[in-house]
Write a protein that binds this DNA or RNA. Structure first.
Length: 598
RNA sequence: GCGCCCGUAGCUCAGCUGGACAGAGCAGCGGCCUUCUAAGCCGCUGGUCGGGGGUUCGAGUCCCUCCGGGCGCGCCA
């Protein structure tokens, strides 16, 4: 907010200079950022370095002219000092009152503080989770879900018009495998002994579905040909599993606006219409897939397609994705004429793009190779490559006290998301996923997250929030009212720690907007940890110096309390962006109660 | 063999879309509780940003190339 004001001033100054013929254009990409070293002022401006070349003058000379122009434009005297430093930075300091007023703004805007119009209401669909409905969610799905939810919340805070969407793969081979697994359990439920092939889904939930079908239909499908029961079993299984997934999502506070079904894409004719569109645009052709590139001795992948009747050399329908940046053309119809998964998926993106201007896909890193063909598809359809942004989610290494928990897809040793949430709680589960960039692998240590010590970042942050409320409670005990904003009071906040906190509070909307534009919710978590660290530091220093929040000087007491009000708002809102609760009190794990230690 | 992601302190990681001397948390050492939560704070120790080139006024950040990890790689989803 304060920064926005600076940007306005700089824009005006650059326009003035351009009008005066000092440089050819005012349309340059300059940056205004808070320098790491507070000695360098409130903000550092790089415009002189950027303009040096177009202006044909050395940076420091341009800087001098920019300084002059800023002074000319700054009628109100909001900029109190301008210094040219280093290679041509302009360091500027602002009137302290501007900073103090940002506290007022934070409190006045309350739960809305941090919201911006960065997105200008742009319609965006965030697709995340989209786990195949073949079983409950595991921890990896959890990371995808939480990250996607963080991105989605961020975009809302930044003024985008967001639809949260889950793509249900309820059509292909995997759900058929699930249906067959259910049928095997169904046979077991009738007392038969069946061989359970390694491809089948072994989970306990499969048995539950089978039991349900037995209760409803008895032995009716026991010896019926597969064609008679497959669709029914599939649909029942998918419905059941989706129920499980909804429950898993609810446990980590995630909801969706829309569940898009792959099956429905076929049934509604969308895939057909899409294929027709592709043919009209000459984006598909019938041909053979080139053999995979593999050099001498390289382990050529064994011939995969074991689908009945499909041989490697048959003709099939290919999409001209290689004309749009993909390595090779990708099949959209198999040689038996049925559409591929890719076909339905680009049809889905095609359809989504018509509902929104920007598409976000949150995908597992193992789908990284899939991204180029999706981008190619969108481009082929006449959209910009940037209309789709893919957030890749790396692996989660589940550990317990530092020791890896083995998770095989086959054996029954999958650790479900729900088990982990039950053990460590919703807040810790969510927060830990924001402590790492999404494209870096993450260790999820169950023991650590349970421990409730400062190893566990979520407690550090929540503790800070609770501590602020403890101050408010203390104030209430002493009948000290929570103060309204007073500039005169605020001006008593002058220590480096206090000014640092004010700057952080003022930067909060910028942090959210920046994180939203980068689709990186982890930045919010890091911001919160740093800001709370700054608060703890200030707080503890006050204990040492005797200058505590509630002190003897009424004006300073009011000012500090107001600072705390702004701070608590930022923390609460930041936690809300991450979907983590902001408790007003926390009990000590050792004493079980506050202040019970002697 | 090809493609994508990653390589920053002993460990785990940030680094704000290229900025000014590279940061934090753990771990190690040493300090701080009569008074609003010590689940906290302060200090010290710790780095050729994997190596080498290049672009730029300026590179951890962009390009090329090696090295070392992860993931993926013919009509599976």
């Amino acid at each position: 907010m304060v920064r926005d004001r600076v940007i306005e001033l700089v824009r005006a100054a650059l326009a003035l200079g351009a009008a005066q013929g000092r440089w050819p254009t005012a349309e340059v990409a300059f940056s205004v950022e808070a320098p790491r070293d507070p000695k360098h002022g409130d903000f550092a401006l790089n415009a002189a370095m950027v303009l040096a070349k177009p202006a044909g003058q050395p940076p420091r000379q341009v800087a001098a002219a920019i300084v002059e122009a800023i002074r000319a434009v700054d009628a109100a005297g909001e900029v109190t000092s301008l210094e040219i430093a280093g290679p041509g930075f302009i360091n500027l300091r602002l009137a302290p009152d501007l900073w103090y007023r940002s506290l007022e703004r934070a409190v006045a805007q309350g739960e809305a503080y941090g919201r911006t119009d960065t997105g200008h209401g742009k319609k965006v669909i965030v697709e995340y989770v989209s786990a195949n409905p073949t079983g409950p969610m595991h921890v990896g799905h959890g990371r995808n879900a939480v990250t996607g939810d963080g991105v989605q919340r961020l975009l809302r805070w930044a003024g985008f018009d967001v639809t949260r969407e889950y793509y249900v793969n309820d059509y292909g081979a995997q759900v058929q495998t699930l249906a067959r697994s259910v049928h095997l359990r169904y046979q077991e439920a009738h007392g038969r002994t069946v061989a359970f092939p390694p491809k089948a889904y072994p989970g306990e939930y499969v048995r539950e579905i089978a039991d349900g079908l037995k209760a409803e239909f008895g032995a009716r499908w026991l010896d019926a040909p597969e064609g008679e029961w497959l669709a029914l079993f599939r649909d029942r299984a998918v419905q059941h599993v989706l129920g499980l997934i909804r429950g898993d999502l609810a446990a980590i506070d995630i909801q969706f606006d829309r569940w898009s079904s792959e099956k429905a894409l076929y049934e509604s004719g969308t895939v057909e219409r899409f294929m027709a569109d592709l043919e009209r645009k000459d984006l598909v052709y019938v041909g053979k897939l080139p053999p995979p590139k593999s050099k001498k001795g390289a382990p050529a992948p064994p011939p995969q397609p074991e689908e009945e009747g499909v041989t490697v050399d048959d003709d099939l329908t290919l999409f001209r994705s290689s004309a749009f940046g993909d390595e090779v053309d990708r099949p959209v119809k198999k040689s038996d004429g049925t559409p591929t998964y890719f076909c339905a998926d680009i049809a889905y993106h095609w359809e989504k793009r018509q509902r929104a201007e920007l598409l976000i896909d949150v995908l597992g890193a193992d789908h990284g190779g899939y991204v180029p063909r999706l981008e190619a598809a969108l481009q082929a359809l006449g959209y910009a490559r940037t209309d789709l942004h893919v957030v890749l989610i790396q692996m989660v290494n589940l550990t317990r006290g530092g020791e890896a928990v083995k998770m095989g897809k086959r054996a029954g040793n999958v650790v479900w998301l729900r088990e982990v949430v039950d053990e460590v709680g919703r807040d810790a589960t969510r927060f830990i996923f924001f402590t790492r960039r999404s494209d870096a692998p993450l260790d999820f240590d169950v023991e650590l997250l349970k421990r409730q010590t400062l190893d566990n970042p979520v407690f550090y942050v929540q503790y800070g929030h609770a501590r602020l409320h403890a101050i408010f409670r203390k104030a209430a005990e002493g009948s000290v009212p929570l103060p309204a904003f007073s500039l005169a009071d605020a001006r008593t906040l002058t220590t480096p720690e206090e000014l640092d906190l004010i700057r952080r509070i003022a930067a909060f909307p910028d942090v959210l907007a920046g994180a939203a534009l980068a689709f990186e919710p982890h930045r919010v978590a890091f911001y919160l940890q740093e800001t709370i660290g700054a608060f703890h530091s200030w707080y503890t220093q006050g204990k040492r110096t005797g200058e505590r929040v509630l002190g003897s000087d009424p004006a300073r007491t009011r000012a500090r309390l107001f600072l705390c009000r702004a701070l608590v708002q930022v923390l609460a809102n930041g936690l809300a962006v991450l979907g983590v609760s902001a408790p007003e009190r926390m009990e000590s794990p050792e004493t079980g109660d506050i202040g019970a230690e002697a």
